[in-house]
Computed example of a mutant assay.
Amino acid sequence: MPVGYLISVAVIAAGTLCALAPPRRPRPLAELSFRCGLLLNEAPVLGGYFLLASTLLVFAQRDIGSPGAWAVVGAAALTGAGLVAIARRGLRAAPVLERALAEGLGPDGRAAAGAGPEGRPRHRRRLARALFAPVFPRRRDVERIPNLRYGDAGRRNLLDVYRHRSRPAGGPVLIHLHGGGYRQGRKNTQALPLLYRLASRGWVCVSANYRLRPAARHPDHLVDLKQVIAWVRAHGPGYGADPSRLVVAGSSAGGHMAALAALTPNDPVFQPGFEEADTAVTAAVCLNGYFGPYYGHGAASSPAAHVRADAPPFLIVHGDRDTVVPATEARRFAGTLRAASAASVVHAELPGAQHAFDLFPSARFEAVVDAVEVFADRVLKGR
């Protein structure tokens, strides 16, 4: 029995199973499954390449001669089939997002989602991501200006600016907040393909740290985001930004914060010491966001409690296999928004997507970035 090959296949098989059918209960098992399956759920090709290399090596070494060894080869084949199924689910994100854009923005939104800025089909780029799965989304035409201070909380009040190296003026702004349950996380880790893509298109993108639990609690995090918005209004033009066109976005807990900020513009309760600053935003993007109440603070700390008729447009994207924040929460929040707001609400549930799908430049997240680009373009044009 080739023990090393057995271990390799077992590890990939376990990750594949966690990605295909993650358990939701008990909570510790769901958390473990989420972590074990996250990489393969977004980059199944990496598992496939590893399986293929391991299998070719064991055959080259002539270690396949017993029934047990052939059983491991069979398990590798089954695991490979599971990885193919995962990859196919990832590619289904694009048509789901196109339908959601058509429903929320009109038929032209769906048409634009299928083509790049030069009119070339985007599905080829998504397929390339599925086959080669690069894990480093930086772009040569984008520069990152790190660790700019926007508040008095040390490194938790630092932000990074991403802009095109040609330094164009008057670019729209995207502010992104990381996730981590308000307990962990940092800038420059999540949604990087989104930040780099928009910056390469002439946007000025901002990724910010904020104060975390237990040293901070609600509404401290929201106050930090409001300070970031105020900083962009005051200093953004110096980096080529047009602060009158500002989209706020977030992942997980950052989505919770982004939704709250979008629904509480210029509220002095959340702007202590800078009450006169304009903190209104043009639109909000929530990726695998949490929309419930903050730890022990009651319903008033949830975005749903602040829904209003003049809310800005929202794009809400969630995974239908999310075991950290169930998709029903996003679905419920989107319904509440649609019932009250006069603005566009685009809501999409991605087939097979888990929590934190925006950590990797996968085929699935490429489709999400395409959708964000189309959504933002339509909102900024007032359509």
Rank of each mutant, 00 (worst) to 15 (best):
R138D: 03
V247H: 02
H123I: 10
Y210W: 08
R155D: 14
G202K: 12
A215M: 11
V232G: 09
H221A: 07
P137C: 05
V142P: 08
H164M: 10
R233T: 06
V228H: 11
G119Y: 05
R183N: 09
G238H: 11
R120P: 00
R120G: 11
P146M: 09
L148S: 03
R140S: 13
D224P: 01
P121V: 02
G238K: 10
R120V: 07
L195F: 01
R245W: 02
A153K: 15
R165E: 02
D224W: 07
L148F: 10
Q184E: 07
P121R: 14
A208T: 06
N188Q: 10
Q184S: 11
V223P: 00
H123A: 15
A230I: 08
G119F: 06
E143N: 04
N157L: 00
R129M: 06
R213W: 00
F136K: 10
D141P: 09
V223C: 03
R186I: 01
R211D: 00
I229D: 01
N188T: 10
R126K: 09
R183F: 11
A216L: 09
N147C: 15
R163W: 00
Y239A: 12
L222V: 13
R211W: 00
V248P: 15
R126M: 04
G170Y: 07
R129S: 09
K187H: 04
R197H: 14
P146Q: 05
A113N: 15
H221T: 13
R163M: 09
L195Y: 00
P117M: 02
L159D: 14
V206L: 10
A191H: 05
L159Q: 04
L225Q: 12
R183M: 10
V248H: 06
S200A: 15
A113D: 04
G181M: 01
A241I: 10
N157G: 12
R122K: 09
P219G: 03
A111W: 02
P214L: 05
N209Y: 03
L159W: 05
A115K: 15
I175N: 06
R156T: 12
P117A: 13
A133P: 06
H178W: 06
S244Y: 00
G116W: 03
G179Y: 03
L194Y: 08
L159S: 12
V223T: 08
A234M: 08
R129E: 08
L198K: 06
A208N: 11
R156Y: 02
V228W: 06
R245D: 01
H221L: 14
A234C: 08
A199F: 01
H235Q: 15
V228P: 14
L174Y: 01
V206E: 06
R120K: 11
A169S: 13
D152L: 10
H164E: 12
R156Q: 14
E143K: 00
L212H: 13
Y210H: 14
R140M: 04
K187N: 05
V135E: 02
G238T: 08
V161Y: 04
N188S: 15
V204R: 07
L148V: 13
L159Y: 08
A234Q: 14
L225Y: 03
A191Q: 02
Y210F: 10
F132Q: 10
V223K: 07
S200W: 02
A191S: 15
Q190T: 09
